[in-house]
Nucleic acid binder design. Structure first.
Length: 489
RNA sequence: GGCCCCAUCGUCUAAUGGUUAGGACACCACGCUUUCAAUGUGGUAAUACGGGUUCGAUUCCCGUUGGGGCUACCA
């Protein structure tokens, strides 16, 4: 059975690149009935953020990427751990790592190192100056093991390094990139256990991926060059290594690595801005992958059916917001209006708009603007004119440009005519046919009637059509606005 | 500095030896339209460069250039 994992560090929030990694991992698991696991890699105490895990889970659940195992949420949204391979938070697994480190030391595959950070820093500088590959010189390898243990017990600060052979080369196959070979002499004696007793990433991933039964590691390209270290660790433990796929990076517009400085990178930023999870998922899925034909709109279900790692590209992709906007508009239009209304409500609240209308009416109001807006967050502002009688400020230039007197006369006549509507006749279809016929009868031009009508109803230069607005406003409010406009100009 | 990865329109990408190099976003023009949006039609725009291999290279090989990643007791 295929088992994938997403293993973020709780350093703040879920990065959009992380979301894509999580999505691909989720897809690979789901399309074969496998499992998708979430593990929290919090071995770096300095970068640890208290609510980091909660934030990541929030974004993941928002997107619908629910883990089958590991760190998850219960119905109340509290963080829990599920599965029989736990704990799934690395800081709770310290004894496990210690046990495997000791095994490595006993077999001679790892050793104590007492070198100071200053010494290591200086070593690197000299190596670089002499155009040599940087790396530990292995001087503590010579220290006798029992002697080293004694020094460590006495409280001398030390780390554990893995013993990397300096001859031969490591060859491995990446699911996306194919065969990769790296000379072993270039691979460092990596620190696997830090002086604070926490493992480094390299030891912890290997141990955890093995113990948790991970079959496919899907992660960012930044890990590609540390694969030989991991492979050597698998070999030392006598374990079979999982398949690996290293994803190309997401980039800024200038092709540098996607960074905070050049725009929003946190999934929660896009949630706040009113993007739909469907759009974000579809968008990030297509950064590096496509089905090979010309279809572009893919639901999570579609992706599960059609995604495949061998169609993932090798080159990095620019995170292009214009395309995201387009996806969002597509999904905004597709959404059933009741669903759209529910999802829009929090954004009215966020904008400080108290909703006094019923859902059905709110749905009608939102429908007015759903095709004119890019995100949910733009909705409250876009429909503001429905709630408040407009002051017509922004339309002043347009009134001046046209013949205001003629427009006023026409509006007055139109108003008289509209009085004859009964409340239940007041709907788009009736308004359209009746006003249309009326215009013909009177011998007016469409534009000379519809334009002043629309502007007096909306109070805006640009807006939905007059019939739609009138329908939403109702007879009484529509006529009041026409009167206001007549008096104003 | 060293090592690794990568390279098709501005952007996301299709085309795995033979295509007028296709699609989408963005942009422009025109149509529809009371405005905006939406929509329809059309258009501008790419194989980084240099060598090979081949009857034939976007495609295979080598080099150059450019970009990115790693090079931590961070992940």
């Amino acid at each position: 059975m295929i088992k994938t994992r997403f293993a973020p560090s709780p350093t703040g929030y879920l990065h959009v690149g992380g979301l894509r990694t999580a999505l691909y991992s989720y897809l690979v698991a789901r399309q074969t009935g496998g499992k998708f696991l979430l593990r929290i890699e919090d071995t770096d105490r300095e970068r640890f953020v208290a609510d980091g895990t909660a934030n990541i889970l929030k974004s993941l659940y928002w997107a619908g990427l629910i883990p089958d195992e590991g760190v998850t949420q219960d119905e109340q949204g509290a963080i829990i751990q599920t599965g029989d391979k736990g704990p799934y938070i690395q800081s709770e697994r310290l004894e496990i790592y210690r046990k495997y480190v000791d095994e490595l030391i006993d077999k001679g595959y790892a050793y104590y190192c007492f070198c100071s950070p200053e010494k290591l820093e200086e070593m690197r500088m000299i190596q670089q100056k002499n155009k040599l590959p940087t790396g530990y010189d292995g001087c503590c390898r010579k220290i006798d093991c029992t002697e080293a243990k004694k020094r460590a017990l006495n409280g001398e600060s030390c780390v554990i390094r893995m013993n990397m052979p300096k001859d031969g080369e490591t060859v491995f196959n990446d699911e996306i990139r194919g065969e990769i070979r790296i000379k072993n002499e270039l691979i460092d004696d990596q620190v696997i256990l830090k002086s604070d007793g926490f493992p480094t990433y390299h030891l912890a991933v290997v141990v955890d991926d093995y113990l948790m039964g991970i079959t496919h590691i899907i992660r960012g390209e930044e890990w590609l060059s540390s694969v030989p270290k991991h492979l050597k660790l698998y070999e030392y433990f006598g374990w079979e290594a999982p398949k690996m796929a290293h994803l190309p990076l997401l980039l800024n517009a200038d092709k540098s690595k996607l960074s905070k400085r050049q725009g929003d990178v946190a999934v929660e930023d896009y949630i706040k801005k009113g993007y739909l999870p469907e759009a974000i998922l579809n968008f990030v899925a297509f950064l590096g992958w496509n089905p090979g034909d010309e279809r572009e709109i893919f639901s999570l279900e579609d992706l599960i059916k059609e995604f495949s790692l061998d169609k993932v590209g090798k080159a990095g992709s620019v995170f292009n917001l214009e395309k995201l906007d387009w996806f969002n508009q597509q999904y905004l239009r597709k959404l059933p209006v009741e669903d759209l209304t529910e999802r829009a409500k929090p954004f009215f609240k966020q904008a400080g708009v108290e909703l006094k209308v019923e859902d059905k009416q709110l749905a009608k109001i939102i429908s007015l603007e759903r095709e004119r807006v890019i995100t949910l967050a733009e909705l409250p502002e876009a429909v503001k004119f429905v709630f408040a009688l407009p002051n017509y400020e922004s339309t002043l230039p347009v009134w001046k440009k046209s013949d205001a007197n003629e427009a006023k006369n026409i509006l007055s006549e139109l108003k008289e005519m509209l009085y004859n509507f009964s409340e239940h006749q007041w709907n788009i279809e009736n308004l359209e046919t009746t006003i249309g016929e009326w215009i013909k009868e009177k011998g007016y031009q469409n534009g000379n009637v519809l334009w002043p009508l629309r502007v007096s109803l909306s109070g805006q230069q640009n807006s939905p059509g007059p019939y739609e607005i009138a329908d939403v406003l109702g007879k009484e409010e529509s006529i009041r606005r026409i009167e206001t406009a007549i008096n104003k100009f």
